[in-house]
Amino acid sequence: MSKPIIELKNFSYRYTHDSPIVLKNITFTINEGDFVGIIGCNKAGKSTLCKSIVGILPFVAGGEWDGEVIVDGKSLNETKGEGVTDVIGIVFQDAESQFTQSTVEDEIAFAMCNFGYDRELMRERVRFAATECDIYDLLGRSPYDLSGGQQQRLAVACILALQPRVVILDESTSQLDPLGRDNIFKLVSKLHEMGKTVIMVDHNIEKIADSADKVLVLHDGEVVMFDEKHKVFSNKQLLNEHFVRLPQVADAAIDLSKSFKGKGDIPITLEEAEKYFGALKRGA
């Protein structure tokens, strides 16, 4: 049984005293090694949730909150968010706005410099992170000259250099072309295989269904569902009620279920669907 790494207990949040409540009494646990996809429509509170998990909200940017966020056994109410970056790294949608340095190499080293890392260790970590994120050839380039996909990989490299146990990506792929997007999903799947906990907010349902283990559906500041991905994506009615799309193959299997029942559970990936619908294959 893996141990909890992130726990939210009755956590509520609003940006200012007179603004609406953005997160409403949220309780869930993410275990070490999980790959959690967070989905939900616009204004569901997805980004606010990510920022609350790392303590930016409320401990850096302010706001009112109730309940608590516990990271690696420590309540952020007590630590005031200090030390979270030792455990979690976060990448935002607009990676470019995170950059401050003139070369990719300095950018990856920047946070380590601030934390006073030893020079040799920094070099080693830059090499490791750049290699893992496939940007080693770009170390001398300016972060601002990179393509969108390369910038996102650099942003991941920056946090990877700090060797966090949890990696959060908040809509990192929404501005990328299919190749750039696939590379980010491949990269996070690799990090997951390395044992890291991954939390990914993304609108690409098919990719989330391919990569994540668990899916959390957020709507209007509340957790609608948080479960193993097949359980989530087979509940078409609940997802539709909350304006969330299903993977196309799951949608088709559910709609056809009155006239055709395939092998096993409702498929959520193309590979699963090919098995599920195998009996319908020409010549089968």
Partner: peptide, 16 residues
Amino acid sequence: QIDPPQITNLDFYLTD
């Protein structure tokens, strides 16, 4: 390098 919709790909697999 164009990836068609998932449902189109499934139909490719099943059909002529």
